[in-house]
Nucleic acid binder design. Structure first.
Lengths: 360, 360
DNA sequence: TTTGCATTTTGAAACGTTTAAATATAAATT
DNA sequence: AATTTATATTTAAACGTTTCAAAATGCAAA
């Protein structure tokens, strides 16, 4: 075929593609322009061996002129695999999850996966809906920071659908998860307050049906009991991980006739709410009340009071969870059982200025 | 068909589905179990009129027993539309973008769209790659907070691919975007510092090839010129929106023999870096230096110093951008030209404690 | 020249939907 | 009872890939 003929044909095909306007060119167009069969084009695209130098070149050229991008929807349908994984988090504005997401994404990209992110807004119904959407989209697996219900999870696992919990696990489920040692970390945090001399120590808990809720309470309980300190009912404030709940619990605590001298807040958002309530009541921290918080972030260290926190390895949580998910997907594909278990990472206490001995 | 026969058939089909294990049931299975054609099943699923009470019931029952979930991959291939839109942001750990994302998601859900989120990490190459992946995934449109390059954008618009810029626009592109009045907001911010009596006012800029970089500089310039204040070269620090750049610029500024008495930081992450540098150098704010920052967040108001900020309507930006994108998609579908333009939202100055008159 | 064998290329059937056209059924009109 | 009309249901062809079996080609040996 002469160069001229090639050019002419190219223009013609380009035009036919442009006419349809938004529709993009297909393997068919490429094959036609290169003067080969679509099977050959497919082989070139997928780097299969056994295509001659000459045709490979022709095909590549045709793809370039047409600016061809393979249709992954069609491919997914054929191969029964999308190379997309879903991630559902309860609060996308919480940096904890977005840092984890970076770990997930980096690891995902390394293995050729894309990421669909869903935000359940701490709403179990919406979480169910998101999971079933993801399933319908035929994602290859899901990372889930649960907002509480196990219903969706049950349905999916019954189908042997690859799923890994991250950060939060509904109490009861205890496999295929990447979490931190919440009991240990909460124990250390409470110990820190006790060692400073505090006795009236309050806690603002997260959602109790979740591991991050109940385990942190357990660690707190353990430390308190060990030190023979009572846990007053009014010092036990049940929050739900939201800023608003932290705010409300903070007000509840500091308006008591005998307010606590130290508060253990179980996540970053609730701590922000707590600090707001302290500001509103003009209660200085740590002078009047010490604050220790789960989750460590950029703002914690450079404003006043510099917060004492329990720092979690957020990026690593995401990274490790994605690795586990990939192993499960592969095992599933080969029809064998994966024997993935729960992975527990350590957390770290960062002592700063928001905790101090109680004022006499 | 007797109830018994139905049950028997159901068990048989269920078993055949379970054997394939992870594969889920198809319209075919449903049709077989319900004893109808797959076209009828399709009609029921899509709520088409003209299916008898009786068959509708049968089909619904069959779908329930099989726990059938439609394969959106197959549907997408057929109808040439995925009902998925992509969103690419330069820093997913920046709450600005996740709050915008909430607006996007709420609006998307309302119209039956799902969301794929990509994080370009301020890397234009990676951004290109993400965009081309999204295109291959055949998303119906893209929301883009650009990290600087226009190359990807050009390629996509040439194909008339629906795309809306959000927050940041590469200088030059000036259509289909939802942004705020950066010049005006930066002008007001600088005016605020000037009105407090500051004359040595520094700026930490963002990436200059982006509207959020250059427009904010323009506003600053305008205010300074109007007040007949010089813009010293060493007070003009070019950052890149990252915490690290804010930190470095902060150090540069405060180590000058004649440091500024006020600093205008052009986004939240850089402000965090700036505050870190002030802490390291033990320079009190606002006593020695005033700080005003773009972007307002939860932590800005309840720690000390309470930050003076320019607050953007983050949620609304996302919401409005998604609405615009949907309009473009619809116009495209009907083959007509959309006449969408740029949408500029107002920002708001929140005066708090980090800005004060210069110390004498 | 033929034969056989390895290599390259192609044809055609999937994958799970939607949809237009065709057919079957029921109801209404003569 | 025969015909028309409206309604309900099914058939079969797409959508853009992958993939396997079959066909074509090239090349060495007979």
């Amino acid at each position: 075929m002469t160069i001229n003929l090639l050019r002419q044909r190219s223009i013609q095909i380009l035009k036919s593609v442009q006419n349809k306007n938004v529709k993009s060119s297909t393997m068919h167009d490429v094959a036609r322009l290169a003067g080969v069969s679509i099977a050959t084009v497919s082989s070139v695209i997928n780097g299969k061996s056994g295509v001659s130098e000459k045709l490979t070149e022709k095909v590549n050229q045709a793809m370039a002129t047409l600016d061809y991008h393979p249709d992954l929807v069609a491919r997914s349908l054929k191969v029964g695999r999308t190379n997309v994984i879903g991630m559902v988090v309860p609060d996308v504005t919480n940096q904890f999850y977005t840092e984890a997401m970076r770990g997930v994404e980096d690891e995902a990209r390394k293995h050729g996966y894309m990421l669909i992110l869903g935000n359940s807004n701490e709403d179990t119904d919406h979480e169910m809906h998101l999971l079933s959407m993801l399933f319908s989209q035929r994602v290859d697996g899901v990372l889930l920071a649960s907002s509480g219900s196990t219903a969706a999870y049950d349905r999916l696992t019954r189908r042997r659908f690859p799923i890994v919990f991250i950060d939060r696990v509904p109490v009861g489920c205890s496999e295929r998860a990447v979490i931190i040692d919440n009991v240990g970390a909460a124990y250390e945090a409470t110990r820190h307050l006790i060692s400073l001399g505090h006795e009236r120590i309050a806690i603002i808990t997260g959602k109790l049906p979740l591991s991050t809720g109940s385990d942190r309470v357990d660690g707190y309980r353990k430390a308190m009991q060990e030190a023979h300190l009572p846990i007053r009912e009014e010092y036990f404030q049940v929050g739900d991980f939201s800023l608003e709940s932290g705010h409300q619990c903070g007000l509840n605590l500091m308006k008591l006739s005998e307010p606590p001298t130290a508060i253990f807040s179980c996540n970053n958002k609730m701590t922000l709410g707590l600090m707001r309530s302290l500001a509103e009541l003009a209660i200085p921290c740590p002078d009047k009340v010490s604050v220790i918080s789960f989750d460590d972030f950029e703002w914690a260290a450079n404003f006043s009071p510099r917060l004492t926190t329990v720092a979690q390895p957020t990026y690593e949580i995401g990274q490790k969870a994605m690795q586990m998910l990939i192993r499960i997907i592969c095992a599933n594909k080969d029809g064998l059982d994966d024997n993935e278990n729960i992975l527990v990472l350590p957390a770290e206490l960062h002592v700063r200025d928001s905790t101090a001995p109680p004022s006499p």
